[in-house]
Amino acid sequence: MAEQVALSRTQVCGILREELFQGDAFHQSDTHIFIIMGASGDLAKKKIYPTIWWLFRDGLLPENTFIVGYARSRLTVADIRKQSEPFFKATPEEKLKLEDFFARNSYVAGQYDDAASYQRLNSHMNALHLGSQANRLFYLALPPTVYEAVTKNIHESCMSQIGWNRIIVEKPFGRDLQSSDRLSNHISSLFREDQIYRIDHYLGKEMVQNLMVLRFANRIFGPIWNRDNIACVILTFKEPFGTEGRGGYFDEFGIIRDVMQNHLLQMLCLVAMEKPASTNSDDVRDEKVKVLKCISEVQANNVVLGQYVGNPDGEGEATKGYLDDPTVPRGSTTATFAAVVLYVENERWDGVPFILRCGKALNERKAEVRLQFHDVAGDIFHQQCKRNELVIRVQPNEAVYTKMMTKKPGMFFNPEESELDLTYGNRYKNVKLPDAYERLILDVFCGSQMHFVRSDELREAWRIFTPLLHQIELEKPKPIPYIYGSRGPTEADELMKRVGFQYEGTYKWVNP
C-alpha cells in the first residue's frame, strides 16, 4: 500500500466541504435556525453545542446559521458558553472563530407547556436576519415526558411559513410498544414523516454505516452471507464503567431499553437485511423493517440478565456495585447486563442465532459485530482449526478484520490463527472521521433520513421486546451478580454456547 501524504486539518475539512456542497440537498446560502429545546441540560452542553461548534469551526454548516437555545432556566448566552465550552476542545488559535460562533447564538427562556412562551420564541426567531423565511431545525434534547406539549406548541407557534421545518427526537422513544405508539401517533398528527428525525446516534458511527458497503459492494461476501456458512452472529456493546452516581436515570430504563432495543437491534438489521433497491432512505429502511418483521418476540429462556457488584480487589469506582450508587433505588432489580438470542425467521437466516450482548462495568470498552462461520467440513488438521470470524469493530479503534487459519512457519503443516486486517487509523491517516452527532446533524440539514429511525421500524423493535420488558417488570427477577471489570455473568457464556457459538479464547485482536 502506497504511503499517504499527511494533510493538514484545513485540507481534510476542505475535502469534506467539497463532498457536502456538491450535493443538491445542502442549501449552503439559505438562512437556517437550529433550535435546541432543553438548552440547559446535560445532553445540550456535552453533545449538541459542542457538535454545532465543530461543524461551524470546520465550515460545514450553511453560511447563515443561527443557534437558539430554549429552556425553562433563566440563562444568558454567557451562561450557555460557560457550561458548554469546556466540552468544545477549542484551541487558543480558534479564539476569534469561537467569538464568531457565540455571536450567532441567542437564548430564550420559557415554559414547555405555555403557548405564550412559544409565541415569544417565534418572535425572537423572526427578528433574526431573514428569520421569518429561514429553515428551522428543532432538536428535542428533553425528557420524553414533555415531548407531547413541546411538539404541539412548536407546531402551533414556531413553524417557518416559507422555509422547511424538521424536528429531531432523542431516544428513548417511549418505554414499550404502547407508549411508543402513543408518542408516534401524537407526533405524526403534527408533522409529516419526512419532517421527523428520530435519532439513534449509533447509526451515525462510521463502521455501522460501513456495514452496507461491506455487504453490498464486495462480491466475495454475497455468496457466504447466509445460514449455510454463518453459524452465529454476535452483536456486542461493552462499557468498562458503571453508573457513577447517575444511576437514578438509568434505573428508569435499564440496559435493554438503553442499548439493546435500539443500538444493537439497528446493527442487527444492517447485518441481516436484503440488498435495498438503492441507497435512498426509504429503500434502506424498507429492508430493515422486513428483517424486524421476521423476528419473533424474545423468549425468556433465551435471556440472561445481570447486575454488577463491587470488586473487592478493585480501586475507586470498581469497588462499588450498582446498588451502592446513592441515586439507585434500594434493592433495585434493574439489569445492567443483558444477553438475548433472537432468530430472523426467513430463508437466508433460518436457524442462525443472533446474540445481542450489552452491559456496564465490564472488562473493556468495545462495540462490534462478529460473524462466526461454520467449521470446515472434512477436517484434515486433527481438530487444530478454529472457526473463521469476520469482525466489524465499531469502537474504539474502528477496524474490519477476518480471523482465519494460516500455516505456522516451519517444517510442518501446523495451522495457527491469524488475521486479515483493515484498521482505519492506519489505512486512512488523512481522513477526519466525523463524530456520530456531527454526521447525523449534517444529515438533518441535508434532509437525508437514511440513518434515522422510521415509525414502522420503531414499532417493530418495541413489538419484539415489550413482552419481555413487561414480564421483567411484573416478576422482578433478581439479576445474576457479576463482578465489576469482569466479562459479565458466566451464564451468558453458557447461553451463547448452547445456541452454537464457540468461544476459543486463544486469539485476541490487537490494534496495530
Rank of each mutant, 00 (worst) to 15 (best):
S123G: 15
I234E: 14
L211A: 01
P143I: 09
A44H: 05
L96T: 13
A149P: 14
F191G: 03
N122G: 12
D100N: 12
K152Q: 13
F216M: 02
D200M: 01
G242D: 05
R215T: 04
N185G: 12
L128V: 11
P62G: 08
L96S: 12
I35E: 03
K171G: 02
D194S: 14
D228Q: 11
W53S: 01
A116H: 13
R192E: 09
K238N: 00
I35N: 06
D181G: 09
A127I: 11
R72H: 02
L75R: 09
L203S: 01
L16P: 15
F173T: 00
S160G: 13
P240G: 10
S117L: 08
Q161R: 14
P62Y: 04
N135L: 05
S188Y: 05
I48R: 01
N122Y: 09
E63G: 12
P143Q: 01
C158S: 12
E18P: 07
Y197C: 05
P92N: 15
S184L: 08
L96K: 06
G247F: 06
G254K: 03
H27G: 09
S184M: 10
T51F: 06
G174C: 01
E85H: 06
N185E: 11
I220E: 02
S160V: 10
F253N: 10
E244C: 15
R9F: 15
F56V: 04
G14R: 15
L96C: 14
L61N: 03
I220P: 03
F191D: 03
Q11H: 15
K238M: 02
L142G: 00
Q209R: 01
R215Q: 01
D114R: 10
A90Y: 09
V12H: 15
Y249K: 03
I220S: 05
I80K: 00
N64K: 13
A71V: 01
F173L: 07
N122M: 13
P223K: 08
G242E: 05
E156K: 12
E252V: 10
F173D: 03
A217M: 06
N126R: 13
E85G: 09
T65Y: 06
C232Y: 05
F21C: 11
G222I: 07
F21V: 14
L235S: 03
S117V: 09
A115Q: 15
P240R: 07
I224P: 06
Q22W: 09
F102K: 03
D228V: 07
G204S: 05
P172N: 01
S8L: 04
A127D: 15
Q195Y: 04
E193I: 03
K152C: 10
L128I: 15
R215H: 00
E239V: 01
N122Q: 14
R166L: 01
R17P: 15
P92T: 13
F101N: 00
I35L: 06
Y49I: 08
E170I: 02
I52F: 08
H186R: 13
Q111L: 13
G254Q: 05
H32Y: 15
H124C: 12
Y70D: 04
C232T: 11
G247E: 08
L98E: 05
L211D: 03
M159W: 09
Y197P: 02
S180P: 03
E252S: 10
K89P: 05
T151L: 09
K47R: 08
E206W: 07
R219M: 08
K205S: 01
Q133S: 14
A217P: 02
V146R: 06
A115N: 12
Y49L: 14
Q11F: 15
R74A: 15
N185R: 11
R81I: 12
M207W: 04
G174W: 01
N229K: 00
N126C: 13
L177Q: 09
I36N: 03
F56H: 06
W53L: 00
N64G: 07
H27F: 11
D100P: 02
F138M: 08
F102P: 02
S184G: 07
V12R: 15
W54P: 02
F216P: 04
F216E: 01
S189A: 14
E19K: 15
Q209L: 04
F237P: 03
F221C: 09
P240T: 12
S84F: 08
K82Q: 09
R104Y: 09
E63A: 08
G222C: 12
Y107N: 03
F241M: 07
I80L: 13
I199Q: 07
T243I: 07
S180L: 06
R198P: 01
F26D: 15
I167W: 05
E252R: 10
T91A: 14
D100W: 08
T151P: 03
L20M: 15
P240Y: 10
I48A: 02
D113I: 09
N122A: 14
A127V: 13
L211T: 06
L61R: 01
W54Q: 11
L7P: 14
W54A: 06
R219S: 09
I52A: 10
C13R: 15
E94S: 07
N210S: 09
V213R: 02
N126E: 04
D251Q: 05
S84D: 05
D251N: 13
H155N: 15
P143S: 07
G222W: 08
P50M: 04
R175D: 07
L20S: 07
T31H: 06
W225E: 00
S180K: 00
D114F: 09
R166M: 04
K45D: 02
R166D: 01
L43M: 00
P92D: 11
L190R: 13
Q195R: 04
E93G: 13
F101K: 03
I80Y: 05
V213G: 05
H32A: 07
Y49C: 00
L75Y: 13
D58L: 10
K238Q: 00
T243R: 00
M159H: 12
L235G: 08
I167L: 11
R17W: 08
F191H: 03
R17M: 11
I224T: 11
Y49P: 01
T31P: 13
G38A: 04
T76R: 12
Q178G: 11
G23S: 15
G14H: 15
I48L: 05
P223C: 08
F221Q: 05
D79Q: 14
E18F: 06
I220L: 14
Y202L: 03
W164T: 10
V213D: 02
E93P: 09
L121K: 02
L214H: 07
D30I: 11
R74K: 15
T51I: 08
F173R: 01
P223Q: 10
S106E: 09
G131M: 09
H155W: 10
Y139E: 06
N122V: 11
L75P: 05
R104E: 01
T151D: 01
A115L: 14
A109Y: 15
E156W: 11
G174A: 04
A71I: 03
S132K: 13
G69V: 02
L137H: 02
L203T: 03
A115K: 14
Y249D: 05
R219K: 08
T236S: 12
C232V: 06
L142D: 02
H186V: 11
C158W: 06
L130E: 15
K97I: 14
L137F: 11
Q83S: 14
F216S: 04
Q119D: 15
K152W: 09
D42C: 02
S8D: 10
I167A: 09
D100E: 11
E18Q: 14
F21G: 08
G14T: 15
L130H: 12
L211P: 01
F66M: 12
N218Q: 04
A6C: 15
L137C: 15
A115E: 14
F26Q: 13
H155F: 10
N185V: 08
P86S: 09
P172V: 00
I230T: 05
I33P: 01
F66P: 06
S29V: 07
R182Y: 12
L43I: 05
R227L: 07
E252D: 09
L190M: 12
T236K: 05
K82F: 11
A78V: 11
Q119M: 14
R219V: 11
N218G: 01
E252Y: 09
K152M: 13
T151A: 11
K46S: 03
I224N: 09
